[in-house]
Amino acid sequence: MAARIRVATASLCGCFGCHMSLLDIDERFLDLVERVDLDRTPLTDIKTFGDCDLALVEGGVANVENVEVLLEIRRRCKILVAFGACAVNGGIPAMRNQVSLGECLRESYMNGIGLERPGIPNDPEIPLLLDRVHPIHEVVAVDHVLPGCPPSADAIWTFLSALLDGRPIDYAYTQIHYD
């Protein structure tokens, strides 16, 4: 049995769908926790990173906090995985790149339908948005890529089990999809 490895996960500008798909590996999670220790992840609510062997990063980079978290993950983790469509290519949030940030905010918070108190949020606790949403490989080096919106539980398990066993990762045709 190989030594246990330390795993972090994070959701940047994503919808947590990829994390939900990770939970969809169901009883295989019992095999997984025998072989990994969880570090910072929304699954445990641990807020700080330790040194990790593996990080699964969901979501693209849309604000300054996403950049900070992603840079720290890169510093802390040996193997960084772009986990799901948004991390891989920006995904749905990157559709806002079609308009300027100002237009996007005005449409959402000033001109949108059914607004009670129009106004662009400017609380200092809200991370500042970037002008564009970026895939994570445009900010840090990425070691592995798992596409899909979300990647299926079977694809996630193919990836994780192969990585843990030190085998080549060999996806079935139906496991790789971009939607």
Binding site: P147, I176, H177, Y178, D179
Partner: peptide, 26 residues
Amino acid sequence: VCPACEKSGDCQLQAVAYYVGMLTPH
């Protein structure tokens, strides 16, 4: 943006990308 495209699954561009093993636009 495949998740937002009605053609997804019937798309030749996507299917050829699957065929050649493209995991990321890189």
